[in-house]
Simulated scan of single mutants.
Amino acid sequence: MAKGKTRDLYQEVTDRILELLDAGTVPWRNPIQRGGGQGWPKNLDSGKRYRGINVFLLASMAWAKGYGSDYWITFKQAQKANGAVRKGEKSSLVVFWKQYATKDRETGEEITIPVLKHYNVFNVEQCDGLQPPDAPTIDPNTVPFEPLDRAEAIVAGYRDKPSISHGGSRAFYRPRIDEIRIADPERFSDRENYYATLFHELVHSTGHSKRLNRGLDTNLTPFGSPDYSKEELIAEMGAAFLAAVAGISPPTIEQSAAYIDGWQKQLKGDKRLVVSAAGAAQKAADWILGESFTEAVETTVVETPIVAERQKEARTADSQLKLFQ
């Protein structure tokens, strides 16, 4: 910023909101269990809740970055608490009103005017040496996570899959680096939702240019656009196909229908969307399962336990797929 230039905090807040929306951070589907903070941003030092636009800014940032804690702290407050912000971590903007005493230019009367000010905070998970009050605790009665063999076989059978790492409190696919990030299995409400969420991100990854090339890494689309909406529907339907193969039935399609309904104006009444998305979702599921189809409906199958078991169903699915193409 040039010396003497006043920061336009209103514009900074607006730009941050638009940035979050463009990044697709609206959590319409999140089966991942949080800590004990209940999603309301709070200051670790004072324990007070943030208010107004700060609630949106910090909660959205926590979602975007996968922070599991609702607690935030300033750089100096972290030091005071014998903690430290990790090197390289970026702060988040918090704004507040401050009353300033001045004189009315016309009447000369003493008045106070509100001025928008700001300061920077960090999530507790960006710091070392601090223990947030809402840190997840292990319930002694919790049943240990047990992988579902058929679901694990699908993941293992995806031969050119992206890298998969665990951590944080959300799930997403980064097309530019071809990586899936997902919360630890124990943080999900149940193992079926864990695999359904992982399948959703796996289907997204088939859109990479080195796979089915839906333009995910070459033609990024903003949140809420028709192309974005279609990609989300493809991921949900593809996850439902994979869940059926794995023998689980997560509530994905119903949520997709609600998503389409909520974005009707953006989708501009595209009556072909569902059929087109279903065809793309089937192709994505086929890619992950290692199945390929010829024009004569004959099926060439890569030998995996899941594919062998579903070979007969695959032929039927291929016939149905041709209706979508």
Rank of each mutant, 00 (worst) to 15 (best):
L212H: 05
T6S: 10
L58Y: 08
S292F: 00
A196C: 04
P162R: 09
F172K: 03
R150T: 15
Q282F: 10
D149P: 08
A281N: 08
I288M: 12
N219R: 06
R49C: 11
I154K: 01
I182F: 06
D160P: 00
K80F: 04
D70V: 10
A2P: 03
A317M: 14
R7Y: 02
G37C: 04
A243W: 09
P162Y: 10
N43S: 12
A196T: 05
Y67F: 15
T25Y: 06
Y195M: 11
L148K: 15
P175W: 06
L116P: 07
D227L: 05
F293V: 15
Y195W: 13
A62H: 01
Y10D: 10
S229R: 00
N219F: 01
R211H: 07
A59K: 12
E186S: 10
P305A: 10
E201I: 02
Q38Y: 06
A258F: 04
N141T: 04
G37V: 04
F241E: 14
I17D: 09
V85F: 05
R272N: 12
L321I: 00
Y228P: 03
V13I: 15
T107A: 06
E19W: 08
V297K: 13
K271M: 11
L198F: 08
L116W: 03
H200V: 00
S91F: 06
W97Q: 00
T6Y: 01
E186W: 00
K76C: 00
T300A: 14
D128K: 13
D227K: 07
R29K: 15
G68L: 01
A183R: 02
N54R: 11
T299V: 15
V124Q: 03
R34F: 01
E298L: 12
A240E: 14
S319C: 08
G279S: 07
E110L: 12
D15Q: 14
K283V: 01
A296W: 02
S205E: 05
N123P: 08
K161L: 00
W28M: 07
A278C: 10
I253D: 10
H200G: 02
Y158D: 05
E291P: 00
T74S: 11
E295V: 15
F145N: 07
Q266A: 13
R170F: 08
R7K: 13
Q311P: 00
E236V: 02
G269Q: 12
A171T: 01
K42V: 14
I260F: 14
V124G: 01
E232N: 06
V301R: 12
N120E: 12
R310Q: 14
W63R: 13
D190L: 04
R49Q: 11
L323R: 12
E236T: 07
P222N: 08
L93R: 12
D128S: 14
P140E: 05
R170H: 10
L21T: 06
D8E: 07
A135D: 02
P144G: 08
K98T: 01
Y119R: 03
N193G: 07
V301E: 14
E12W: 04
A280V: 02
G83H: 10
D149E: 15
M61D: 13
A296C: 02
Q311Y: 12
G39S: 08
R187D: 09
E295H: 09
P136W: 04
L18M: 13
L148I: 15
Q126C: 07
S209D: 11
W287G: 00
